[in-house]
Design a binder for these strands. Structure first.
Lengths: 229, 229
DNA sequence: TGACAGATAAGAGCATTCATAAAAGAAAGG
DNA sequence: CCTTTCTTTTATGAATGCTCTTATCTGTCA
């Protein structure tokens, strides 16, 4: 299990949540594998309480399944939930990018621009981890610009399903195209062209779609239920 | 504080969450008033642990503010968050009702219809509590029909902000118009007329809007920050 | 040999205790 | 009399221990 140290002002609960989530997304904790609060508490040098609270949180989003008196498992990938996360993201982000065109401030425009620049840098340097982080941050900045940060926070739980599959498809997603999209979206927002920004965002989000069949082939046993007809 | 008894198979945590949420929406726990897990634990005949977990959940949605080692308060009404809840609801529900037109099953159509009929009944009998419940259920059924139940669950936390203000404006909201909207939306979904359903939903959701200024006048001191210019 | 009942084990949920930090109040000094 | 500092109180957060539920295993009886 991949573990980094607890941040200075981070509570045990947040630390546990961050670690468990990250390991699930990175597939260090495999879909279908069982996890217990006791084990995790030892790994993270915490007591069961904060770990349990983190697991409960993840269970709310069906990222882990808790079977009372039997045990808990990292949920198998439910493609219905992956698509639901995708749906929420599409619907909300296209609305948000339009709003951002109206409401964004100069300060946030600058933050967006430097984010896009950094993405170009890390593409040259080939640091995919850093790129993913910047990608998330780009989208978060748009929510912030639209005055909808709470909405962004709310969706994060569901996005685990999406991020996990995205991680499984690494290599098929083209970082360069994503970054170019970001550049164009930034320009549209800067120029306050809301309908253009919306169209660009729709196109952009479609790029994240991964080929379900291919991922299923590569990771058999990680999926819940059969492929649909 | 308004307290009902713990349901048969309900965990202490869920019970605490349900009670605290209900009391916040009903304004039994006033915006700005301080609450401690200890007091609530006594009121609900529970220990601090499940109560604390419920408060943590509410804090995630900024419904309560926890100041470590200082105390917790029921959050003042932040109209930014009320409008954000409204925004999320509008954006998601219009998308969902369109999807529901494509995907709804016969069984769910029947559930929707009997829900609408019950609404008519309770309007005649004048039972506003029951009506609010049926209203929520109507919208939940649409999410279910669209295969987006997880999305509905996700938004519930944010909707507390919205429900609380809606409760403050009781009397200004016209139950009869809402129920008539539901009837029309049901018919559009049944007839698979997605664009009509979407328009009806937009109109319908606008009815929930309450006059901020009026509520501010009626409940001064419950609000965070000044009215915007 | 199969089925049912009782024992045993394991885990979730809750209660209680302990640690820590911040604020309020009391006491002392200027 | 006001200000500053130290103590006490009270809050959240974490840790540990206990209980109750449920699943599984084993033994006995038909």
């Amino acid at each position: 299990m991949y573990i980094t140290e607890q941040l200075p002002r981070e509570s045990g609960r947040d630390y546990a949540l961050r670690m468990i989530k990250e390991n699930i997304i990175r597939l260090e904790l495999e879909p279908g594998s069982s996890i217990s609060d006791r084990e995790l508490a030892v790994c993270l040098s915490l007591s069961r309480t904060p770990v349990r609270e983190a697991l409960l949180e993840l269970a709310k989003y069906k990222v882990v399944d808790i079977y009372p008196q039997k045990g808990s498992v990292v949920s198998l990938i439910d493609y219905e939930l992956v698509e639901e996360a995708c749906f929420v993201r599409n619907v909300l982000e296209t609305a948000v990018v339009e709003l951002a065109c109206e409401k964004i401030t100069e300060a946030l425009l600058e933050e967006l621009e430097s984010n896009v620049k950094l993405q170009r840098f890390y593409i040259q340097e080939r640091v995919p981890d850093k790129l993913m982080e910047l990608d998330d941050e780009f989208h978060r900045l748009l929510f912030k610009a639209a005055g909808k940060l709470q909405t962004y926070e709310m969706t994060k739980g569901m996005m685990v399903h999406f991020d996990r599959v995205r991680n499984m498809a690494l290599g098929t997603v083209k970082d360069r195209s994503l970054a170019e999209d970001h550049q164009k979206i930034f320009e549209a927002v800067r120029d306050r062209e809301s309908s253009k920004a919306k169209k660009l965002m729709e196109k952009h989000l479609n790029r994240y779609k991964v080929d379900e069949e291919e991922v299923r082939r590569r990771y058999p046993g990680y999926f819940k239920g059969p492929a649909r007809e």
